[in-house]
Design a protein around this nucleic acid. Sequence first.
DNA 1: ACGGTTTTTTACAAGATCGGGACGGTTTTT
DNA 2: AAAAACCGTCCCGATCTTGTAAAAAACCGT
Lengths: 215, 215
Amino acid sequence: MNILIADDEPFMIKIVKAYFEKEGFNILQAQDGEEALRIFYAHPIDLAIVDWMMPKVNGIQVCKEIKKQSTTKVLLLTAKGEDEDELIALQSGADEYVRKPFDPRILIVRAKKLLQMDRLIYLGDLKIDMDGQKIYRNEQDIQATHTEFHLMKYFIENRGIIISRKALLDHVWGFDYYGEERTVDTHIRRLRAKIGDHTIKTHRGMGYSLEENNE
Amino acid sequence: MNILIADDEPFMIKIVKAYFEKEGFNILQAQDGEEALRIFYAHPIDLAIVDWMMPKVNGIQVCKEIKKQSTTKVLLLTAKGEDEDELIALQSGADEYVRKPFDPRILIVRAKKLLQMDRLIYLGDLKIDMDGQKIYRNEQDIQATHTEFHLMKYFIENRGIIISRKALLDHVWGFDYYGEERTVDTHIRRLRAKIGDHTIKTHRGMGYSLEENNE
DNA sequence: ACGGTTTTTTACAAGATCGGGACGGTTTTT
DNA sequence: AAAAACCGTCCCGATCTTGTAAAAAACCGT
């Protein structure tokens, strides 16, 4: 998850950065609006946390520019406290608005809400969207088929533990499915080809398991 | 659009009601948490604006109850002003949090944002006017029909995720619609003809999805 | 090192799914 | 009233997915 923080106060960036990195986010930083946009165009940003008052290009302009190009989430920060400003912020397309000074935990909560972290699962270079039924590898949709996705889903729900072919047939294909156990092998193989060999481990005579740490 | 307002101060309800009705919303009101839930169960509510401090059942509880049952949006109102409270509010599942006293216009903006109204969405060479019910391609109105627009709207509200035909029938045609699933295909085809083939992607055996980046 | 067993790989045919064309019925516009 | 637009359904050919079988490779205890 890449988060861009744009603020002209180095101290502010330092604080926010520290909190977000503790939560496992990857942080990119900018000191003014121009730099913010340059970074935005050069990297895949999931969320931009932008201060309103910045040199060169202000936060509102950055927000509008980002929103014109993409669906990247934007959170506006501001030292101002007028209701009027909040209106302008929201109308410029910002997804969220937080007033300075703020409790950093609130920023985290709001950021996570914007990023819909609850439906996304990260596993090494993989990202699984449980709602969207998609699997990404290095941000690229691997185009998993129906069975492949449900296989992956069941592995994730039982990650780390060894699952027998029978259990997989029962849960992915349905308990009333009648077919060869070896069919599972083929689908494991197809899935492996898409997500990388290392992620699903074979346990001879027992079944397969999804490994937490791949490498 | 049905909005439920729950607050124990009649004056508060009166103000909010007035503003929202001016915007064309249909308002239902409750004086305490118990009444709020009763109304919620009896009517299709799009958004619940709930005061934290209420007799019998408080706002947090109402929020949790609503979220347990549905995906109805909840906006919490509060006279308190602690950051701590905002955290509790968001963690209880509330979608938005507004402190009293507030500028009614902000409440409107936030409500509309939650309801995904009044928004212009850009998607490659497309522009979708959620409010005006129009879709433009290269600034040209593509003259989408009623069903086509609502199909598009639902895709946008769930962009990037794979949506089954059944889900589309349920949400675009209505959960009580009885008809062929393949009808969806035909409308997808007609929509594609107007917006370009690339935007809506087919996922064999799963459904369709609206892609963020059309390359 | 060997032979039996289990897993991986390859190949292919059956089956399911989808896109597009066409059509008739209904509603809206002219 | 006629014409146009819109909607839902059906069908067919093209395409993708899936299950199975069979060959190749890997594994394991002796």
